[in-house]
Amino acid sequence: MAEGRRLPGPESASPVRFAYLRTRKRGYSATVSDPQWVTQRQAAALLGVHPSLIPKMLRRGDLKSRVQAPSLSHSEVLSLAEARAAETAKLEARRARRAAKASGPRPPDEEHEWLLAPSAAAVLGCTEIALGGRAARGQVPYVVHGGRRWFRLDQIELQVRSEVAQRTRRP
């Protein structure tokens, strides 16, 4: 910047040109201490949102504004914050229920170790299709729970031991 040149600003211009800045600042600072009204920035802090969301909330009708600054009712902002917190809690509860359902299949009981078809087939040393055939013929015990076939690990191991015993048995 060249020496001696100054940028135009309120202090270098005529008092009439920037008078609106001074009156706006004075009027604004005088009403900030009013506890019934808050600014958009203060409302954003109370709601836990970005300040750019406050005009959108005004357009949607979530908040109402007045002409004077600060323009938002403190009690209205707090009631909106409570409503948003309740809505968020409901959404989180719904997500938790959905996650519990989608967390995977649950075994029929907690007393025994249960296996699904892929694991049971691996223990028996056959394919899932062969296991399905054995189960359909009644050669392998299973329980249908939650739309799936569940195999008890102890019964599968017993079946493996009996197959091994039959192969190694001498006449």
Rank of each mutant, 00 (worst) to 15 (best):
P105I: 00
K101Q: 02
Y28I: 06
Q155P: 01
Q166D: 04
V16I: 14
R41I: 10
L158E: 15
M57D: 06
K25N: 03
L72E: 05
L80W: 10
Y20M: 10
R5P: 01
R60A: 06
A69P: 00
G138S: 06
T88A: 14
R134T: 11
S33I: 14
P10S: 03
S73I: 09
K90R: 15
L80D: 09
L63P: 03
R137F: 07
S52W: 12
L7I: 12
R169T: 04
R5I: 09
S65A: 15
G147C: 11
D109V: 08
R84F: 05
L158T: 14
V143G: 10
T168M: 12
A99Y: 00
A30H: 14
G125V: 14
E82H: 07
H74D: 04
E157H: 04
Y20K: 06
V77K: 09
A83N: 00
S52N: 13
I54T: 01
Q159G: 05
P171H: 00
E3R: 01
E157S: 06
V143M: 02
W150M: 11
A121R: 00
T88E: 15
D34E: 13
Y28P: 00
R22D: 15
P35H: 09
E87G: 05
G125A: 11
L78G: 00
V67C: 03
P108T: 05
R94P: 10
G125M: 07
E163M: 09
G48F: 12
R149V: 03
Q159A: 06
D154P: 09
D154Q: 05
Q139W: 00
G146R: 12
Q42L: 06
A44H: 04
P141D: 06
V16K: 11
A100Y: 03
E113Y: 08
S65N: 04
A43Q: 02
C126Q: 10
M1R: 08
R84C: 03
H145L: 08
G125W: 10
R98W: 04
V164C: 10
S65P: 04
H112K: 13
P70L: 07
G9N: 15
A30Y: 09
A130S: 13
V16T: 14
L58F: 02
Q139I: 02
L7R: 10
W114P: 02
D62P: 01
G147L: 12
I156F: 11
V77L: 01
P10C: 11
Y142D: 08
A13Q: 08
D154N: 12
D62G: 09
L124H: 05
A86G: 02
R5M: 11
R137A: 11
R24E: 07
S33H: 13
S162C: 03
P35C: 05
Q42K: 12
V140H: 01
A121G: 03
